[in-house]
């Protein structure tokens, strides 16, 4: 058991390191510069500090960079290893397939949450650094961090699953992030209930006191949203484990 856990830890460590050292991580750094620049520019416009700060982080981090980061790392980690065949030494290690899958999921979760946190923090520091930090601003920051954590949990499970099912998982990811979450998720009516973003914004409505997220009209209850996201994560993980367990690597 101890040896199993150590092997799992080794898989998480090596996969996480590999993802961070990958060229794809440059996208994170670009996003950091981009968001810092935008937040700095907006801050210089002398707007309503807490409202605008909250809205910008809601728009850029929760709705855009969070699913984007999970999509980039989730859809490529296992898929890249399958394609360059470096997964062979993992498959021939004495670790069960379900633990292997969990190892990859944990790696994607760590890298994605780190990337999203880096982007969020850079934007926050730039914006509130210029306009002034107080306890309200710090609270907005931690509220967004909580939503990012929930979001990473579920988006990672979705994109890791997609990566083992679809060969061109990046295209699916782009479709999902921009069309489904971005467009379908903002349509009126109940169709938004099938987007992850809806539940994240519903949690945000309960947590936050500033910005349009705090006035999100179509929100589901916080408890129901958290339970929905947990159940969705569990179902996606279970499905991924079953498919990975049965997957052949010719």
């Amino acid at each position: 058991m101890k040896q199993d856990l150590f092997a799992l830890f080794s898989l998480v460590k090596s996969s996480t390191t590999k993802a961070i050292l990958n060229k794809k991580f440059l996208i994170v750094l670009l996003a950091v510069f981009f968001l810092s620049a935008v937040m700095g520019y907006v801050a210089a416009q002398d707007l309503e500090r807490l409202e605008e700060g909250s809205d910008l982080m809601d728009f850029f981090v929760i709705s855009f960079f969070l699913p984007l980061m999970c999509m980039i790392f989730g859809s490529s980690l296992i898929r890249d290893e399958i394609e360059d065949r470096s997964i062979t030494h993992v498959l021939t290690a004495p670790i069960s397939r379900t633990k292997m899958y969990m190892g990859y999921y944990i790696s994607v979760f760590i890298v994605s949450i780190f990337a999203a946190w880096l982007i969020l923090t850079s934007g926050f520091v730039t914006f509130f650094g210029i306009l002034g930090v107080d306890m309200e601003a710090v609270r907005i920051y931690f509220d967004i961090v909580s939503i990012v954590a929930f979001g990473t949990l579920v988006y990672s499970s979705l994109f890791v699953l997609v990566s083992i099912v679809i060969e061109r998982s990046l295209y699916f990811g782009l479709f999902y992030v921009f069309i489904w979450e971005g467009f379908v998720g903002s349509l009126p009516g109940n169709i938004k209930l099938v987007s992850i973003r809806h539940y994240l914004r519903s949690i945000g409505k309960e947590l936050m006191e500033h910005g349009s997220i705090s006035r999100y009209g179509a929100a589901s209850g916080m408890g129901a949203s958290i339970i929905t996201l947990f159940i969705l994560t569990a179902v996606l993980l279970l499905l991924g484990m079953i498919l990975f367990r049965e997957k052949e690597f010719p």
Partner: peptide, 26 residues
């Protein structure tokens, strides 16, 4: 298992590869 294809990651050293394989075997 030593496969007929190249399964080595190009951005790693041989030592890192072996440490990783060894760790996966506990």
């Amino acid at each position: 298992f030593c496969p007929d294809y190249d399964n080595l990651s190009d951005y790693s050293t041989g030592k890192r590869y072996l440490y990783q394989v060894g760790a996966l075997h506990g």
